[in-house]
Write a protein that binds this DNA or RNA. Structure first.
Length: 426
RNA sequence: GGUGGGGUACCGAAGCGGUCAAACGGGGCAGACUGUAAAUCUGCUGGCUCAGCCUUCGGAGGUUCGAAUCCUCCCCCCACCA
């Protein structure tokens, strides 16, 4: 049995740990949990680091628990939030929870007999909690004076008109209680999470010490940042989700492939299971031959394979090759449909393109390639518009049936990466 | 309630009777270079039937041949004073 904290440490993914945590893992198998917020029906790449935390834990022979905050999600964690949150309905939360469960199953082994991963919903116990019992048993152990000093609460108290509701103010009690319940039910003695969870985690540790006289531990992972200061997990297209319906495997793959050089090695350590030697090799490859981007490629392939499977990866790869390899000639209609399935598309009736065809400016504006005809005109004049990968030179050009690939598709591109598929209907 | 300062394009910010679709900076988009990078350089960045026309400078009126610019009223912000 290995100590997962050593693994975290060399990977640079351990921001902080409570006293005695390292020794605790050396003594024998432990059960540890991480909570996931069910504010959306999918996790995004921002949750990937904690998930990898659970993965390493399980590989080291310990038991991971993923807690989906069906109950706490109904309350809202004030940590890191400037404003009071919109409350989710129970139905929304339940739905989101299902999505998240499916995604965690891609990372953790729920089948092994020795240390299977578990997935629980804290609504199971928070939902049936009686107010009076809770206030007597749990509330007693929390000092309002201490709560008021908490960073997350204090910031909100200083807000002029925002403030904090009693609901969110009590959030930390809920999360602390979660830890206690998990200790009782699963002998779970470790809680992990993002660094913003430190306060919530230590609150749970305190509660366990007071109510059960036991020692529990906490480990927090750093906030993933990028060297250029861009918020990790966001692209022009928005958040990068794990759900293929929200972020296609192709875009997901591209997200990782586009990692900046300085981030590539840290990310390999964070998000793949590669060992030290492999990472070191890629590091020197990146230093010697940066243009090959071996590290980014490996990163993109590993992570995409894990999240979207072998099929998702090969589709993403194929799409990448076609989109950046250049040649669209010779592709069948089916191949185009497949490769461009990830690309935003619009549909036009076939007769639009019959005879004289449609002026390209109108088509660009109406299909959403450009925001207006003026924009379309300027983009063409600037040399930034391509039809079927051939630069459009003439602003007055018309698009006709002969332009359609396989008689069915028009592939527009603005710039290097922005594709748009126009489908001919009828 | 009093006094002073303001509201300009995605954001910040100039302009203070015509030469203003509005300087400059940021952001965004595109081009060149490259590694689908960073940095850099270049162009574009209200709409259209695009060498021209139309709608914009908090809102509504007015003065003027002509207003983002002057006047009146209204709305909203900020600073200081009570």
């Amino acid at each position: 049995m290995n100590n997962p904290l050593d693994e975290y440490h060399w990977r640079g993914m351990m921001q902080d740990l409570t006293e005695g945590a390292h020794e605790a893992f050396s003594q024998g198998p432990r059960t540890a949990y991480i909570g996931f917020d069910p504010t959306a029906s999918s996790l995004h790449v921002g949750s990937l680091l904690p998930i990898m935390g659970l993965v390493h834990l399980q590989r080291a022979g310990h038991s991971p628990i993923g807690v989906v905050g069906g109950g706490t999600g109904l309350i809202g964690d004030p940590s890191g939030k400037a404003l009071e949150r919109q409350l989710l309905t129970r139905e929304q939360t339940a739905e989101n929870l299902e999505g998240i469960r499916g995604q965690l199953e891609r990372f953790l082994d729920f089948q092994v007999s020795t240390n299977p991963a578990r997935m629980v919903n804290n609504l199971d116990w928070l939902g049936e909690l009686r107010t009076v019992d809770f206030l007597r048993e749990v509330g007693k152990h929390f000092s309002v004076n201490a709560l008021l000093r908490k960073e997350s609460v204090r910031r909100r108290l200083e807000e002029e008109d925002g403030g904090i509701s009693f609901t969110e103010f009590s959030y930390v009690l809920m999360q602390a209680y979660d830890f206690l319940v998990l200790l009782d039910r699963y002998n779970c003695t470790v809680q992990m999470g993002g660094s913003d969870q430190w306060g919530n985690i230590t609150a749970g540790i305190d509660l366990i010490r007071r109510m059960r006289g036991e020692k529990a531990f906490g480990v927090v992972f750093p906030l993933v940042t990028s060297a250029t200061g861009v918020k990790f997990g966001k692209t022009e297209a928005g958040t990068v989700w794990l759900d293929p319906a929200r972020t296609s495997p192709y875009r997901f793959f591209q997200f990782w492939l586009n990692t900046d050089d300085p981030d590539a090695i840290p990310y390999l350590k964070f998000f793949t299971l590669m060992g030290k030697e492999e990472v070191a090799e890629l590091e020197s490859a990146l230093a010697d031959r940066p243009h090959e981007r071996a590290a980014q490629r490996a990163l993109a392939e590993e992570v995409t394979r894990r999240v979207h499977g072998e099929t998702g990866l090969s589709r993403a790869r194929q799409a990448t090759q076609v989109l950046f390899g250049g040649d669209l000639e010779g592709l069948s209609g089916e191949e185009i449909a497949d490769v461009f399935s990830d690309v935003p598309s619009s549909e036009f009736p076939r007769q639009t393109f019959e005879g004289e065809g449609m002026p390209i400016l109108d088509l660009l504006a109406e299909s959403g390639v450009a925001s207006s005809k003026g924009d379309a005109r300027r983009s063409i004049q600037g040399g930034g518009v391509y039809l079927n990968n051939i630069r459009v030179e003439d602003v007055g050009r018309r698009v006709r049936l002969e332009d359609a690939l396989g008689g069915r598709f028009l592939v527009f591109r603005k710039g290097k990466k922005n594709y748009r598929l126009v489908k001919l209907l009828g």
